Simulated scan of single mutants.
Amino acid sequence: MGEVVNAIVASSLHSLILRLRSTGSNASAARSPTSALGFRPKNVTQEMVDQIHAMFPDIPQDNIRYDLLRTGNVELTSNKILEKGFLDAPPPAYYTLYPRTQGQAQANQQFVANATPMTPKDNLISRYRLQARLDTAPELSENEVGGKAKWEDTAEKREASLRERKAQMILAARQRLLSKQAQAEGGSSASSQNS
């Protein structure tokens, strides 16, 4: 009978030790950046984040850092912003590994407070001050609008290039809207003449 009790105690201790080891390894795996983010993060310095944030101040620093963790390259991240116009927001696991500092939270709140909301009377033409270019804007094909960005030598040239691409996209969108409205008016007047 004593041997049976010893065997039960030994097996329960053995299972307890196995459970403790498995929960310990899961806890350490959950804390590793590779398992939390789903990729092996590259080395990112604050200078890299600041460099991109200086070029694109409307992109949150957390989004920039998250994309840099993936790419590890300022140029790739900048090109992604130029092509897409935004960067994906980091997942919740990112904030457990890279918690926001008090300064970042205040900067984000200040950015939101300073952002001017668009009123219903406001439009992109007036917001980007493109009224003077409305009459002089050439007709652009879909392939010419925006286009692929060329990496410029200086930050000022990159910023000017981005501004020009935004202006072209806004003006092209306006042209499309006006042509659709003209087609709709032409179709409705033709149908009213037929009846």
Rank of each mutant, 00 (worst) to 15 (best):
L82Q: 14
I64W: 00
E75H: 08
M118G: 08
D62R: 05
D50A: 11
P92H: 07
A27L: 14
T116K: 13
D67Y: 07
A36I: 05
K42Q: 15
A30E: 10
E47D: 14
V49A: 00
R70N: 05
L87F: 00
V49I: 09
M118K: 09
G38C: 02
K121G: 12
P90R: 06
N108G: 11
R70A: 11
S32T: 11
N123Q: 02
L87Y: 00
P117H: 10
A105D: 06
T77Q: 03
D88H: 10
Q46H: 10
L68I: 05
Y95G: 03
Q109H: 06
M55H: 07
Q102C: 08
P117V: 10
P60V: 04
Q61L: 09
T101C: 02
R70D: 04
A29L: 15
Q106Y: 06
F86A: 07
S35W: 06
R100A: 09
Q46W: 07
P33E: 12
I81K: 01
A36N: 01
A107W: 00
Q46T: 14
N79Y: 10
N73A: 08
T45Q: 01
F86H: 11
V49T: 00
Y128L: 14
D58L: 11
P99N: 04
I64R: 00
S35F: 12
E83I: 07
N26V: 09
R65T: 05
R65E: 11
S78R: 11
S78C: 12
L124A: 06
Q102Y: 08
A27S: 14
P60K: 11
D88G: 07
L37S: 02
N73C: 12
P117I: 10
F86P: 01
Y94T: 05
M48R: 02
N26K: 13
L76A: 13
A105N: 06
P90T: 09
Q104T: 07
A115S: 14
Q109Y: 04
P41N: 06
Q46D: 14
N114M: 09
P91E: 07
N79R: 15
E75W: 05
R129F: 12
P57R: 05
Q46R: 12
F56T: 03
N43G: 09
P60H: 09
K80E: 11
P90A: 12
L37E: 02
S126C: 06
T77A: 12
E83V: 09
K121Y: 10
S32K: 02
A27M: 13
P120C: 01
Y94P: 02
I59D: 00
Y98Q: 06
S126A: 10
P117D: 13
A30P: 00
S78W: 02
N108D: 14
N43C: 13
S28M: 14
D122S: 08
G38M: 04
T119I: 08
L82G: 03
V112Y: 06
V44T: 05
L37C: 01
R129H: 14
D62F: 01
I52M: 02
Q106K: 11
Y128V: 08
Q46F: 05
Q51A: 15
H53A: 15
